[in-house]
Design a protein around this nucleic acid. Structure first.
Length: 424
RNA sequence: GCGAGCGUAGCCAAGUGGUUAAGGCAGCGGGUUGUGGUCCCGCCAUUCGUGGGUUCGAUUCCCAUCGUUCGCCCCA
């Protein structure tokens, strides 16, 4: 084309899509507000070592997916690939723990990962997430998960599945890791290339390999849940009980693990059947070690993040309809009427109606076509004869019903207009 | 990063190694209705993502490049 285009893996969000974004965001706001979560906004870039220390140097995200650059002051900075580390950093930096009690926070915004783009996966993508800092209670886990379910439920999404697991404490995981590596060692040559590599890097990942031979080998491997300490197991069961009490159904998936190092105990994902390989629309878990690892006080925490692009795909796919938001469309004929049309539009707007005014000056018939397509419930028609000044024809587009309205009387018929809009 | 597919107007889409690149939707102009959603007429790609090559001649073949889709990897 020879023109400059948006960088690979980024997208413009055009007005017709923005309505979906606003819908998602406004539902998130109200769900979070009801649970008294407060919004936090952290920088889009951070010092690179925040992510190295927080997410883990061995992870793919840090190892090969970060947008890292050196600024003019020779600082190594990175566009945030996720926001939990940033929130934890802010929590420490501003001593939020000193405010006492539990900090319930939420955020939304763009994240950046250098990955191969595909449907539901971009290089700049957007997440909404929550973080609950300062509570070790199983109830905190259950609350966070419940809020995620409420959020997605209020969006009207169908066919969602909550999968749940515990990866235990750091000690549990270390012990299990050794047991798993011991078990796999004799099969080393039979493993696929990726899994061989993961044997040293991240053995837990081998568990959900899609390679058939590897799956066979893994079938008889030790099971993580069976290697948990009694305390961890109890905790796992407590969270499950709470979820059940809340009426949330879930599936235990013993091979569910997370890609980021900071997770402990509860891990969960909410998946959709309608997104192919990018099925996860929300994921999170407990991260008791992160704040301390970043140099803060020992602070247990739990949180999750949801990918907005994926939610958007689902909303569209499941044909969730959003109102277009136009109440009235104003058309006019002749110079006198045109000036009055603008006045009328402004008057209606100040009465809190959504009003589109035809500025084209084109033939009446054309203006009507546009009124029709605007999705407005009714249009106001202003004529050009002397006798018609000060009045307008109000025509309801669905029924064709038409009445004369005096512009001076508009305010008095507002309740009637509202009622009519409601019913149409 | 690996493997495969795709890229024709705002959108969907047919097409061929050879003078003028179907069609539909949307859009624009006009006609019929004083005022619409129907109908009719007209206009909407010197150009087939971009760059190069092969050829007398390429949108059609080849190479590169960019973008995108699917799978792997990874992840929200």
């Amino acid at each position: 084309m020879g023109i400059v285009q948006a960088p690979r893996g980024t997208k413009d969000i055009l007005p017709e899509d923005v309505v979906y974004w606003q819908h998602i965001e406004s539902i998130a706001h109200s769900v979070f507000q009801n649970a008294v979560y407060r919004e936090i906004r952290t920088p889009i870039f951070e010092q690179t070592n925040l992510f190295e220390r927080g997410i883990g140097e061995a992870t793919d995200v840090v190892g090969k997916e970060m947008y890292t650059f050196v600024d003019r002051g020779d600082r190594s900075l990175t566009l945030r690939p996720e926001n939990t580390a940033g929130v934890a950093r802010a929590f420490i930096e501003h001593s939020l723990h000193a405010q006492g009690g539990v900090q319930r926070l939420w955020y939304k915004g763009p994240m950046f990962r250098y990955e191969r783009p595909k449907a539901g996966r971009q290089r700049q993508f957007h997440q909404i997430g929550v973080e609950v800092l300062g509570s070790p209670a199983p109830r905190a886990d259950a609350e966070a998960i419940a809020i995620a379910m409420t959020f997605l439920g209020e969006l009207g999404l169908k066919n969602l599945k909550l999968v749940f697991n515990s990866i235990g404490s750091f000690e549990d995981r270390k012990r299990y890791r050794e047991a798993l590596v011991d078990y796999l060692a004799p099969f080393k040559d039979d493993l696929d290339e990726d899994s061989k590599d993961r044997l040293t890097r991240n053995p837990l990942r081998i568990l959900d390999s899609k390679v058939e031979r590897t799956q066979e080998i893994v079938k008889d491997a030790p099971i993580l849940l069976e290697c948990l300490s009694p305390e961890s197991t109890l905790r796992f069961e407590q969270v499950q009980q709470l979820l059940t009490d809340l009426g949330l159904s879930y599936v235990i998936e013993p091979t569910l693990v997370r890609g980021l190092d900071y997770y402990t105990h509860s891990v969960f994902e909410i998946q959709s059947d309608d997104l192919g390989t990018e099925a996860t629309v929300c994921a999170g878990g407990r991260y008791d070690g992160l704040v301390k690892q970043l140099g803060g006080p020992d602070t247990p925490a739990v949180g999750w993040a949801s990918g907005l692009e994926r939610l958007l795909l689902l909303l569209k796919q499941q044909a969730v309809d959003l109102a277009n938001g136009v109440d009235f469309y104003v058309v006019s004929r002749g110079e006198l009427a045109e000036a009055n049309a603008l006045k009328l539009a402004q008057q209606l707007r100040s009465l809190n109606f959504a009003v589109d005014l035809d500025l084209s000056g084109s033939a009446f018939g054309k203006q009507f076509k546009r009124a029709d397509r605007s999705g407005a419930a009714a249009c106001f028609i202003l004529g050009d004869s002397e006798a018609e000044q000060g009045t307008a024809q109000l025509k309801w587009l669905a029924s064709g019903e038409q009445e004369e309205v005096r512009q001076a009387d508009i305010e008095t018929i507002v309740p009637a207009l509202r009622e009519k809009l409601q019913s149409s």
